[in-house]
């Protein structure tokens, strides 16, 4: 059996909103299939309105898809869980609690049987990791945006989730602070081997952080058009990465997609794969812009033991 098994597997996700006063309902995205391997850092890029945040909320269990299923570790995602840590764009710290309390309440939820000292030590470890030691007793309102986002990241890492979901975590930060926190994030992810799924608008940020980047076509009726492989070796840093020969081909490919192709794909004249009940999960083709290689996972059914076989086929 050479079935490729993803750690997180989204199959045929659809999100529809009923139109006000009857009429046709609005399909934000459809036929969405993607997988994330353990320890992988995946970014998703697309224009506003293609449903990125909705995908994030579905993965977090805060929202429900109109169709399709999300599996994590072969278990269906149904409702929020401490197995998936979420960092929201607006930090979502509880403003009446100190930074430390914001983390300890999460740690206490994760490990209810821990003693007060254990919870404190564990929380302090993550406060130190994001470089906020000394500010832990301050309220979020007394911190800058960058420091607040660090607390939020520390909280998400402190519960040691199997999957970390980041919803445009650096969108509200200035460029300098963003760069600093990105580097911290890289460092922490390398240390912990965390599996991350992140929404971003920033092409350079995505290349710096991700192993793969999902490109979404424009909404409505959006879908993931490609999965771009970033084969730039780690450890990456902001100054060195631009000298890598693969950097600009990848960057140009991404920008070209966002500027031109994301729109074309959404053109109603473009033939669309019909959505039917027996449609097999068709993962988006994996593209390596630097080498020009495109590979596609094709799913075939074999008679042996009712198992599905997936093969990697090189198209180019």
């Amino acid at each position: 059996m050479n079935r490729k098994k993803y750690f997180l597997d989204a199959q045929g996700l659809v999100k529809q909103f009923p139109a006000p006063k009857g009429g046709e309902s609005l399909t934000v995205f459809e036929n969405l299939n993607f997988g994330i391997n353990k320890g992988e850092f995946v970014c998703i890029i697309g224009h506003s309105g293609c449903g990125k945040s909705t995908i994030m909320n579905i993965l977090a269990g805060l929202d429900q898809a109109s169709g399709g299923v999300v599996l994590m570790d072969n278990k269906e995602v149904a409702g929020p869980s401490l197995d998936r840590g979420v960092v929201f764009q607006n930090y979502s710290l509880l403003p009446w609690m100190s930074c430390l309390r914001n983390i300890t309440f999460a740690v206490k939820s994760r490990w209810p049987n821990w003693s007060r000292e254990q919870v404190y030590e564990h929380s302090m470890k993550y406060i130190e990791m994001v470089g906020l030691k000394g500010a832990e007793l301050r309220k979020p309102s007394q911190l800058s945006g960058g420091m607040r986002q660090r607390v939020s990241i520390a909280r998400a890492f402190a519960i040691e989730p199997k999957l970390l979901l980041l919803d445009e975590p650096f969108g509200a930060l200035d460029a300098l602070t963003r760069g600093m926190i990105q580097e911290e994030l890289i460092k922490i992810c390398e240390q912990t081997g965390q599996t991350v799924f992140m929404i971003t608008h920033d092409v350079d940020e995505a290349i710096l952080l991700a192993d793969r980047i999902f490109l979404m076509s424009n909404g409505p009726n959006a879908t993931i058009a490609e999965s771009v492989v970033i084969d730039i070796p780690r450890h990456r840093d902001r100054e060195q990465i631009i000298h890598n020969p693969h950097y600009y081909p990848i960057r140009n490919h991404l920008v070209d997609f966002l500027v031109k192709r994301s729109k074309e794909l959404n053109d109603p004249d473009t033939p669309r794969v019909p959505h039917s009940d027996n449609a097999r999960p068709a993962y988006p083709p994996e593209v390596n812009p630097a080498t020009g290689q495109i590979s596609k996972l094709i799913e075939t059914e074999t008679t042996e033991g009712n198992e599905l076989t997936r093969q990697v086929v090189n198209l180019q």
Partner: peptide, 16 residues
Amino acid sequence: KDYLNVARTHELNPLR
């Protein structure tokens, strides 16, 4: 809703 989402993602029971 953000605060309630924080509670939900951290699996807080209704009392907490």
